[in-house]
Design a protein around this nucleic acid. Structure first.
Lengths: 122, 122
DNA sequence: CAGCATCCATTCAGATACTG
DNA sequence: CAGTATCTGAATGGATGCTG
């Protein structure tokens, strides 16, 4: 055994240049994750979807104070981040289902870490 | 043994009302944590301080593209969140040292979780 | 049903200049 | 050395109204 985290698996970098940036960079993994969660309401939308797939109207009903504009923005943002998939169901009236991707479900531990830190009184 | 996470320790809530909010709330632990990390440059400032205490000028040197205005704002924000302490050293020229609090050091695992998610290719 | 378009108020970050 | 003051442009979020 020589140094920590040199082997495999996740972990803070052993020489990963993205840990040395001297300015905010879209390539930094921390920024990637924070970008996915950025913006008001985002974590609440993810929380709803952690309970299973939902239709647009179900999301509106669960978060009644969230406007169409921002909800659409958040869903597009989360879809762009690979967190959410949008599925159109044929027929009338048109229905749409939103669900977390596997990558989206992996946000569970991240939100857990944030919760634990924020809940700790210290 | 009955249910998960009912006992002690951290974990997603067993009946914590803060997990059921229908709008962004400053009481939600996740929001508390994200508020501490919010804003451009914030995580980079924390990263610098994870390497040990620093003076104002050392932070400026490590992050040369960060303006005085934003650096001051971030340090005040982090101090308000209990992440950083500011210590004035007497004498001339005036010097100041910034260091993470114990609570600030506990951001390590949070940043690790964010890093791991952002670094995962999936 | 599931949204997009538009307008407006607020917040945010960068640049520059000045101070205890 | 370690900041604060001020200004400006960009991004953000909410409200309202319209559409496939």
């Amino acid at each position: 055994m020589t140094h920590r985290t040199v082997g495999g698996g996740p972990g803070l970098p052993a020489g990963d240049p993205r840990a040395l940036v001297d300015a905010p960079s879209p390539d930094c993994p921390v920024e990637i994750a924070l970008a996915a969660l950025r913006g008001r309401w985002t974590t609440l939308v993810v929380r709803e979807l952690l309970g299973g797939e939902r239709g647009y109207g179900e999301l509106r009903a669960a978060l009644p104070k969230l406007s169409d504009k921002v909800l659409s923005e958040r869903l597009a943002q989360l879809a762009g981040a690979g967190v959410v998939v949008r599925e159109r169901r044929p027929g009338w009236p048109p229905t749409v289902r939103y669900a977390l991707t596997p990558r989206g479900r992996e946000l569970g531990p991240v939100l857990q870490a944030l919760w634990d830190w924020g809940a700790a009184a210290d």
